[in-house]
Amino acid sequence: MSDDPRTLDPDYDSHGGFPNFEPATPGPGFGRFLTAMRRAQDLAVSAAPDAGTWDRAADLAESLVDLLAPSEAGEGVGPANRVPSLPGAGSLLMPPYRVTEFTADGVELQVQFSRFSVGGNHAVHGGVLPLLFDSVFGMVIHATGRPISRTAFLHVDYRKVTPIDTVLTARGWLREAQGRKAFVNAELRNPDGDLLAEANGLMIRLLPGQP
């Protein structure tokens, strides 16, 4: 009997709200938009202008909302998270990263946090790192050829302060597989190779018909 769940359920790829993502080619304007939006995010948490400037900024932000709102689409339709050539694959949810290794032996990213992710004292907020590690876990699942899985648990150990404005290396790998279970590990290091944080988790393969 085949271990591929698609033999039992042809719609498996779309379960749990997971569309079948295909790379998008939105054109250079989208890359410019992402760059500007990332800078706007940084300024939104760091700027301290006068009240009148905030009023003008609000007007411009509302104008942007009015411009984009008519084009709002379902998940997997817009280019966000579907442009591998752009930092963070084109997703503002993630810190800008670039994949440097994607094999069954492991996944490696170059990632750089900015002011938007600061929790205090110019250090990355501790809650941001589980988001990064969870995404790395998902990449590991894809890189190893395992079917769509959900995170059952994710544990993070913080070893050193994670800095902003520094190119860091995140790496993830499959430690062990047991049927539907995939035990994964990940780590984040600075340019000197120092361990900043490490994570371990469990990814569970979805059953046919399971959301």
Rank of each mutant, 00 (worst) to 15 (best):
M1V: 06
S2L: 09
D3M: 12
D4T: 08
P5T: 08
R6K: 10
T7R: 01
D11K: 14
G16D: 06
E22P: 11
E22C: 07
E22I: 11
A24Y: 04
T25N: 04
G27N: 09
P28L: 04
P28A: 03
P28Y: 03
G29L: 07
G29P: 03
F30V: 12
G31F: 09
R32D: 12
M37E: 12
R38K: 15
R39Q: 14
A44S: 11
V45K: 10
S46T: 15
A47G: 05
A48G: 07
P49I: 04
T53H: 09
W54Y: 14
W54Q: 12
R56K: 14
A57Y: 08
L60T: 15
L60R: 15
A61F: 10
S63A: 11
L64I: 15
L64R: 06
V65C: 01
L68V: 13
P70M: 10
E72K: 08
A73M: 05
G74Q: 12
G74V: 11
G74K: 05
G74N: 10
G74Y: 06
G76A: 05
G78V: 09
G78P: 08
R82T: 05
V83I: 09
V83P: 09
P84R: 02
S85H: 04
L86K: 01
L86D: 00
G88S: 00
A89H: 00
A89R: 02
M94H: 07
P95W: 00
Y97S: 02
T103I: 12
G106W: 01
V107Q: 01
V107S: 00
E108I: 02
V111A: 00
Q112I: 06
S114H: 12
F116P: 01
F116A: 05
F116C: 03
S117G: 07
V118C: 06
G120R: 12
H122E: 13
G127H: 10
V128F: 07
L131S: 15
L131V: 15
L131I: 15
D134C: 12
S135M: 14
S135E: 15
G138D: 13
H142D: 14
G145H: 10
R146C: 07
I148R: 13
R150P: 04
L154M: 13
V156T: 13
Y158D: 01
R159N: 07
K160H: 07
V161M: 03
T162E: 00
I164D: 00
I164A: 03
D165L: 03
T166W: 02
V167L: 00
R171L: 02
R171W: 06
G172I: 01
G172R: 04
W173P: 04
W173V: 14
W173G: 05
L174K: 05
R175C: 12
Q178K: 14
Q178D: 15
G179H: 14
G179I: 13
K181P: 07
K181R: 15
A182K: 01
F183K: 04
N185R: 15
N185A: 10
E187H: 07
E187C: 04
E187M: 07
L188G: 03
L188H: 01
R189E: 04
R189P: 02
P191E: 09
P191G: 07
D192V: 08
L196A: 05
L196N: 01
L196C: 05
A197E: 00
E198N: 13
E198P: 05
A199L: 03
N200T: 03
N200R: 10
G201D: 00
L202Q: 02
L202F: 03
L207T: 05
L207D: 12
P208I: 08
P208H: 11
Q210W: 02
